[in-house]
């Protein structure tokens, strides 16, 4: 066990994967000498050289397209997109090429490319630096989409994503980069556990589903609700695509109430899929329609307004009130 920050856990995981598999190469803007703008690749170029930690030209479509070519050639590229808002120039390569190659080649070509994206808001950045693009990727068949919420998962899930033969979009909650936690680097994860949700806190009254940056907020909300006698079960989704419906359904059948929270907008967001699928699967067990507590359906606002946009403890508790039919929910029945 070591105490590591979220970003150190990622750095260690990259290092271990590179030591373990000589075909693992890192690609991205400023990831070499600078170690990335968030320092996730700090020191790796010095130790592994410029052909394994590749500072690329400033072109995201180029980075992902070239990663696909390297993967064709037997490499296992791990791409860093500098910020969430800069993945869009690579959208075509991700959605039309990376996601579909296995299908198009009838299983002959595997593209084990991991795309790391620091995502989400809360750090006071200018526009295009705080996006939550998960729904675009989750909607695309052929991509797997995961997001760790703590240092241990950052370490383990990244190693698993790199080892996976399918392309994985790996969403790193950038506002959690500095949190510390215990990390067991010797932990051997169960096969397939990358795509499993985790019950982060057990409870009987309501299921609160979060991922990435909002898991911590959800846990805080559960603590606050406990003081008012509401026993919340918090689920850390971990994998956004595929969704571990076995774990989610078991929880919802037990509690009969579900609140889903994410930073991304509500309309056609991940929460919409979870709400619909859980309603289909658990309809007879539900005491209330699923409630979504999300960012607004607006372009990410300027820094001085972002705290209004991001779901916080109070807004989650308001959603909990709604699902519990408690008090007069402030946000109205449809939030």
């Amino acid at each position: 066990m070591k105490t590591l920050t979220f970003s150190q856990a990622l750095n260690t995981s990259l290092r271990d994967s590179m030591e373990h598999d000589a075909k693992v190469v890192l690609m991205g803007e400023d990831i070499g000498k600078l170690g990335g703008v968030f320092r996730i690749t700090d020191g790796l170029q010095k130790d592994f050289g410029e052909h394994r930690v590749i500072d690329t030209p400033l072109a995201e479509s180029g980075i992902v397209g070239a990663a696909i070519g390297l993967a064709f050639r037997g490499y296992r590229p791990v791409v860093e997109i500098q910020f969430d808002g800069f993945v869009y120039p690579a959208f075509d390569q991700i959605v039309s090429q990376l996601a579909k190659m296995h299908f198009r080649s009838r299983g002959n070509v595997k593209l084990p490319v991991t795309i790391r994206i620091p995502f989400g808001g809360g750090i006071g950045s200018p526009e295009h630096h705080s996006e939550s693009p998960e729904a675009y990727f989750a909607h695309t068949a052929g991509l797997r989409v995961v997001s760790p919420s703590n240092p241990q998962d950052a370490y383990t899930m990244l190693a698993q994503a790199i080892a996976d033969d399918d392309p994985v979009i790996f969403l790193e909650p950038k506002r959690r980069y500095h949190v510390r936690g215990e990390v067991d680097t010797d932990l051997v994860p169960e096969p397939g556990s990358l795509y499993r949700a985790k019950v982060a806190r057990e409870g009987a009254d309501l299921t609160l589903i979060a991922y990435g940056p909002l898991v911590k907020t959800a846990l805080d909300a559960a603590d606050a609700a406990a003081e008012e006698g509401i026993d919340i079960e918090v689920i850390d989704l971990r994998s956004i695509e595929p969704v571990d419906f076995a774990t989610l359904s078991a929880s919802v059948r037990k509690t009969g109430r579900v609140v889903i929270t994410h930073e991304a907008g509500k309309f056609a967001g991940v929460g919409a899929e979870l709400a619909a699928s859980l309603t289909e699967r658990c309809f007879d067990h539900l005491d209330h329609a699923p409630v979504r507590v999300t960012g607004f359906d607006i372009p990410y606002p300027p820094a001085k307004l972002e705290n209004h946009h991001l779901p916080d403890l109070d807004r989650i508790l308001d959603g909990v009130d709604r699902a519990m039919r408690r008090n007069a929910p402030l946000l109205g029945e449809d939030g």
Partner: peptide, 17 residues
């Protein structure tokens, strides 16, 4: 309409606070 609803709901929420 959808966004207008979010705006109103949030205004009520803040007022309730």
């Amino acid at each position: 309409p959808w966004l207008e609803e979010q705006r109103e709901n949030y205004a009520n929420y803040l007022a309730g606070f």
